[in-house]
Amino acid sequence: MEKQKNYEAYLKNTHRLGRAVSVLTLVMLLGAPFLIGRLLGTAPDLGAAARGFLSVGLVWTVSSIVEYLVYTPMLGAGGSYLAFITGNLINMKIPCAMNARELVDAKTGTAENEVISTLSIATSSLVTILVLAVGVLLMIPLRPVLESPTLQPAFANVVPALFGAMAYKYFRKDIRLAVVPLCCMSLLFMFVPALTSSTSFMIIPSGALAIGLSYLRWRKSRKGADQA
């Protein structure tokens, strides 16, 4: 009885602390660009930021909502506040917490899971912060090399490099689905080359097309399953 009472008090305080810390982090992260801008004698172009938000922000909003709904039950209260503050969910925090949970055999929704998830995600975040801090310290002396003209083509092609890797990663999950948006987009950019300067806006029709096709196929397979 006493233990349950203590745990409930812990959870209540975790929510209080988690909310306060999340709001503070939000304020700092949104405030930093303005502060840095001031330091550099400028300010963010709010119009351009709003247009950028309408193109890519919407995609990431949907992604964030799905991530929140799916991962929060696995992570519990403390774990989810920390995970959404520290990021790198799919590539690190979720598998890390799942691994720790399996090692100690904690079940979803239990007090034990709440504690283990929080311990795991806090540790994981601290390791990342430490590794990155040490790495950045070592990177400073390398700056002249990083800024050399020979390396500039590399930095000019960061985005194609990212999307090449992502193409393999996602296309292999559903190559049949990928063919239609890829062909449509390629043809569109061939016939209207001026659109290449608005690629991020073209994510919306391309994403909508892929989601629509995926939904139609999913509905068809569900109908088939229901009939069987």
């Binding site: 569109l188 950019f189 939904y215």
Partner: peptide
């Protein structure tokens, strides 16, 4: 939900690759 996320990323990647081809 999971399928929609994969589809969304496929759409996003297609837009960028399409722009390189175009």
């Amino acid at each position: 939900g999971d399928l929609a996320m994969v589809a969304m990323f496929i759409g996003m990647v297609s837009a960028y690759l399409g722009s390189y081809i175009g």
